[in-house]
Design a protein around this nucleic acid. Structure first.
Length: 588
DNA sequence: GCCGTTTTCGGCCCGACTGTTTTCAGTCG
């Protein structure tokens, strides 16, 4: 169901709004105010509030107190009242008023490249255009020609972007963009005069998806960037080309923004282009408060540059420790850097084992022995074999008998191994009613029981939540796998009260998985931080279906770093004996 | 609408590029 319907639904019965609902209401307010010609700073305030709420690791519904809302950064008395109104009534009167004034289609016009609030307002006021379809008609009929400010070049650009819109995906999974990013970066490094080239943006921050690529280039001398890009085989066209800035479209449809600076500004440009936007804004406000100016060329006191060559010196000059790119979301990292309490983020080398992997006994492609050998070769000390239970139609899931035989086989294998341990496990389906797809008798023989949802994704929130809570209540369950069941770009997260699930996991002393498959990355960053704040240990798991997929752990590490996780927060960073003790604790 | 080692009022990040203009507004990142 569309979240917006929740917000405008009449208030009756129990209202339970997620932070995302509040964030999207504020984001919509910002867009409608902008289209209405409202003071841009007021618009910014709503945008900022939306971002702050979206990044909170605690549900607003749990905070519950208006004065507490007021203490959040960027939330003052007015917005605190609006949050309270939303939570209490499920509605926001100010938003409903704005919606009555502006047609819904105007917001989609804002997404069209080249259109901002001013031009959208002009289209609406001048020609009565109420959405993308109206704009297309006006372009074809030539009606747009008489609107001031819409010259031939802009009209052509609009027509092109309206046609291309359906074919270009809005965001790319990070791994889908990676080969293009690396190949472009390597090409740029080979261009004469280029000293350094790095992919920045959300790619460097390790987000699960990227909308485009941002490339920072430091040069030793003048470089004709546009000419170099035109020679690159991957580049389809340049949509903007200045001496220091270019925007290119790759043949696969991925957009690339490139920024070229002298070497002495490399750190400042990298900082600026890595973002996030909100992180940069906070840094610039901080600079301003110290009578300094921060831009992509450096940090300035008056005309004099006091830092710029490296990120380290820039952060230090602002009185901060260097902040890892994964944390740069303006979610408290700047205060932490000031107070020397940044987390020491988990690294791949911290992992001692992997607690979710498949063999050809179910839908994996390799034998038990091959998977074990591969895990060992990667320097791991233990590997849990967690094949699917029988319930799933798509795979050769294990029934109780076959699972028992696998358990015996693992016992035999362990007897032959030294310095490595295979843990006996299963990935058991959570049935529609929350029961598990295998009997207790066999589950209790296992070291680790990973429970997962693989069907009935569309259940309503209370039913889905109860389903998961019931599964967690099972005395053998150790880990809740890929908790939201999302598939990036394919399947939305299930509707579930994550706060209640967190509380149950904590109370049961069991664990949440951060599934490292690049198409899942589930937990996401915000939920990962919430788990961390609750003191819940997270299993960073490859969910490998072949030996090569054990390498996917790195994607999980990146996501975990975005969720502020240190090695101490990670279940499979613990040595085997401690892991066994922790797994035993959640047995009842 | 928020916020305060300038301030409870008057600021609010900063620069590049484009197109439509006769000097700059709008968009974008």
């Amino acid at each position: 169901m569309n979240r917006h319907e929740v917000i405008s639904a009449p208030a009756h019965g129990a209202i339970h709004l997620h932070n995302e609902d509040v964030a999207s209401a504020f984001a919509e307010m910002a867009e409608l105010l902008a289209i209405g010609g409202e003071n841009p700073f007021r618009v910014r305030a709503y945008e900022r509030a939306a971002n702050v709420v979206r990044g909170l690791s605690r549900p607003l519904a749990d905070i519950g107190d208006r004065r507490e809302f007021d203490r959040l950064p960027g939330i003052g008395p007015d917005l605190a009242g609006k949050i309270a109104e939303l939570l209490r009534t499920g509605r926001l009167r100010a938003l409903e008023q704005l919606r009555r004034r502006a047609p819904a289609g105007l917001r989609e016009l804002l997404r069209v490249p080249g259109l901002g609030p001013v031009r959208v307002r002009a289209l609406h006021a001048g020609l009565g255009i109420r959405g993308v379809a109206d704009l297309q008609r006006a372009l074809r009929s030539g009606r747009l020609n008489r609107l001031r400010g819409f010259g031939p070049v802009l009209r052509k650009r609009l027509a092109e972007s309206l046609e291309g819109e359906a074919t270009t995906p809005r965001r790319w999974p990070l791994v889908a963009a990676t080969p293009y990013a690396e190949s472009l970066r390597d090409y740029l490094r080979s261009v004469p005069g280029v000293a350094r080239a790095e992919i920045a943006g959300s790619y460097r921050r390790g987000r699960d998806t990227v909308a485009d690529l941002d490339v920072v280039i430091a040069t030793q001398r003048r470089v004709d960037l546009a000419a170099a890009l035109r020679r690159c085989a991957d580049v389809h066209l340049l949509s903007a080309a200045g001496p220091t800035r270019c925007t290119a479209l790759l043949r696969n449809g991925l957009q690339v923004d490139l920024r070229l600076v002298p070497q002495g500004s490399y750190g400042a440009a990298l900082l600026y282009f890595t973002g996030s936007r909100e992180h940069n804004l906070s840094l610039r406000r901080r600079a301003q408060a110290r009578q300094l100016k921060l831009n992509e060329y450096g940090l300035y006191r008056g005309q004099r540059r006091i830092a710029g060559a490296s990120e380290q010196e820039l952060y230090h000059a602002l009185g901060l420790e260097w902040i890892a790119p994964e944390l740069r979301e303006d979610r408290g990292e700047i205060a932490a850097a000031e107070q020397h309490r940044l987390p020491r983020l988990v690294e791949l080398g911290d992992l001692r084992g992997d607690l979710h992997a498949h063999t050809n006994a179910s839908d994996g492609s390799e034998s038990l022995e091959a998977m074990v050998a591969a895990a060992r070769a990667r320097g791991l000390e233990y590997l849990a074999i967690t094949d699917h239970s029988r319930h799933l139609g798509i795979v050769h899931g294990l029934d109780a008998d076959r699972l028992s035989r696998q358990v015996d086989a693992i016992d035999e294998l362990n007897a032959k191994l030294s310095g490595f341990t295979v843990l006996k496990g299963v990935e058991v389906d959570i049935l529609e009613d929350g029961r598990l797809a295998l009997p207790d008798a066999v589950l209790c023989r296992l070291d680790v029981v990973v429970a997962a949802i693989h069907d009935h994704f569309q259940l309503g929130e209370s039913q889905q939540t109860n389903r998961v809570l019931r599964a967690l209540d099972h005395r053998c369950v150790s880990i809740l796998a890929h908790p939201s069941a999302r598939l990036l770009g394919e399947r939305a997260p299930i509707h579930m009260d994550f706060g209640r699930v967190l509380a149950a996991v904590k109370e049961r002393s069991c664990f949440l998985e951060l599934n490292a498959q690049p198409g899942r990355l589930d937990l996401d960053d915000v939920h990962c931080k919430a788990a961390c704040d609750h003191g819940i240990l997270v299993s960073i798991a490859s969910d490998a279906h072949s030996s090569g997929e054990l390498a996917d752990l790195i994607h999980g590490i990146r996501q975990a770093r975005r969720g502020w996780l240190t090695a101490a927060n990670v279940l499979n960073a613990r040595p085997l004996d401690e892991l066994r003790r922790l797994l035993a604790q959640c047995r009842r």
